[in-house]
Simulated scan of single mutants.
Amino acid sequence: MYAYIDGKLTFKCPTYIVIEAGGVGYQINISLNTYSALANTERCKVYTWLHVKEDAHTLYGFADEGERRLFLHLISVSGIGPTTCRMMLSSITPVEIQNAIINADVALIQRIKGIGAKSAQRIILELQDKLKKEGPDSLISMPLHNTVRNEALSALIMLGFGKQVAEKAIDNAIKNGGEDLTVEQMIKVALKNL
């Protein structure tokens, strides 16, 4: 529902922040990773995810889009909720979590409070192939300037194609159609090559 909230940081503690945007103060739950990323800022942009339950609507915030995407992957695992994900992101860095999943490092994931052996194995089982398919660091690194090529590549990955396969298709599309293609044209040409 909310992609991000950009505004004045009016309150900050290790578990949540309050951002004032448009005259409204948003209380946003954060991880320690995000807390340290917002060290000495007055104004910030926090990527968000809204958790809706019968009795509450809770906002979770992340310092960057990569951390939010990792969070969304983690909550897709059966038995892992937003509170557990926040604990994971507070215990070890997103890069360490991603590497632990890709390398099937059950011991590292198990060291996180609230994660037992079965949960750690389930996380690895359900996410390892997804993260390998997207390529190393795909969740963590985000392009700073979205070019037409990067947007088309992201769209193909979201459609379920592997990163390397999508990159080859995009490169072929550029070679055949030129660099003046729009995002839509590039995706269409690339899909014909896949």
Rank of each mutant, 00 (worst) to 15 (best):
F11G: 00
Y2W: 08
L181N: 09
I140E: 00
R122H: 08
M88F: 02
S138H: 13
P82E: 13
M87A: 11
G22I: 04
Q27Y: 02
L139D: 00
L139M: 03
P136L: 11
N172Q: 15
K45P: 02
M186A: 15
F71N: 09
A100G: 12
K133H: 08
D55F: 03
K175T: 15
G135M: 04
K12V: 10
I75Y: 02
A104S: 15
R122A: 02
V183N: 01
L144E: 13
P143M: 05
E167N: 15
E134D: 14
R86M: 14
I19K: 04
K8P: 05
M158Y: 04
G7I: 02
N150R: 04
M88H: 02
R149K: 05
R68H: 00
A169V: 07
F11Y: 14
H57P: 02
I92L: 01
G160T: 03
E134G: 13
D6G: 06
D180R: 09
E151P: 02
K45H: 02
E96Y: 03
I19T: 11
L139W: 01
L38G: 11
Y4P: 14
V165A: 12
L191N: 07
A169K: 00
R68L: 01
K53I: 11
D6Y: 11
N193P: 04
F62N: 10
A104G: 13
G23F: 06
A104I: 01
E151F: 00
I170P: 10
P14F: 05
G25F: 07
C13T: 13
R43L: 04
Q128N: 12
K168W: 14
G22Y: 12
L74R: 08
G135Q: 04
K192M: 03
E20T: 14
L127Y: 04
N193G: 15
K192C: 01
R122E: 06
T48Y: 12
L139A: 00
P82C: 03
L181Y: 07
A3P: 15
S90Y: 07
I115M: 09
K8Q: 13
D105V: 10
R68S: 00
L32G: 15
I109E: 05
K118F: 08
K45R: 15
A155F: 07
I140D: 00
N99W: 05
D55I: 08
A120I: 13
G22M: 08
I174E: 15
H57V: 09
V18M: 09
H57E: 14
T84I: 06
K53A: 10
T147G: 13
R122I: 04
E42M: 05
K133T: 08
W49K: 06
K132G: 04
Q27K: 12
A107H: 12
Y4R: 12
T34Q: 01
V77G: 12
I75Q: 07
A155I: 07
I187S: 14
I124H: 05
A166C: 03
R111T: 15
